[in-house]
Design a protein around this nucleic acid. Sequence first.
DNA 1: ACAAACCCTACTTTTTTTATAGGTTTTATA
DNA 2: TATAAAACCTATAAAAAAAGTAGGGTTTGT
Lengths: 150, 150
Amino acid sequence: MGWFQELFYFCKMLSKKTKYAFHALTYLGKHKEEGSVLIQDIATEHGISHKFLENILLELKKAGFLGSKKGKGGGYYLIKEPKDIPLSRIIRLLDGPIALLPCVSLNYYEACEECKDQVKCGLNKVMIQVRDETLNILENKTLSDILDKE
Amino acid sequence: MGWFQELFYFCKMLSKKTKYAFHALTYLGKHKEEGSVLIQDIATEHGISHKFLENILLELKKAGFLGSKKGKGGGYYLIKEPKDIPLSRIIRLLDGPIALLPCVSLNYYEACEECKDQVKCGLNKVMIQVRDETLNILENKTLSDILDKE
DNA sequence: ACAAACCCTACTTTTTTTATAGGTTTTATA
DNA sequence: TATAAAACCTATAAAAAAAGTAGGGTTTGT
């Protein structure tokens, strides 16, 4: 498929940051008509620390998912269609580059320290398969799937 | 280069513990005929700390994947057929939950603090789908798939 | 007896995640 | 135009988890 398949192969549990991001996006999706929504409203609804959520929304804004309005009467709002926000994009943004397994990347390749010869590494080959299959799932589920089920 | 690097290093991957476990299992699978294998042999082969690997092998033994023999001439050996060791079992043992959220985990379930009503949570429902599809992949790939590719 | 090898528990260090703090800037409106 | 509300920004502290270390205990072949 494409280079973007490299993005995923196997993910552990989502961080709170990412989970909160999904909650916030869902909230914003549900309150689209209201124009903009306060950080505090989302924080209160889900019992999240205002300041923590603030950082998350800022990241989502910088990444182009949200717009905002400063000052009195301001707030955040979605600037993308929910169907154009795949789970993979959000997870990637918030969970960030952490534990690496560069040995499954074709585009940014780096050998594992413990592998003498990657070409002969069965783990590498199987994990590439898993990556391809998992990516297929997460690229195709979007915020709109979440909203449909609320 | 910044954005590029981030693209390919964004997701939580397998912990070293789990990765080493797979390497050890693969090594044991390849050296089945020899009866038993020393921790040190595996550690040396992959440049892993002996003591760290020792803990991992002990866990694998307690979980019923390996047998061992103490004393001179001892070592570890597989007591399950590679085809009966799915990736999911090893990942769960060493890394914990496969689900992306605690509220959709089969083996490590925990209610979300921030969810007033899980039954109405769209994120929960979508993540259950993701879990089922991901599990389907990880339960059907086994150690024998890795060995076949070595 | 002795050395080899696994067994067990606890601890330390390092890294990552989570959360907080303390301001600055922008904007509506009284 | 003063004020308060709200987003914006950066740094740092606290907590948790992962990675690695230490040191002895137990079993076993020779």
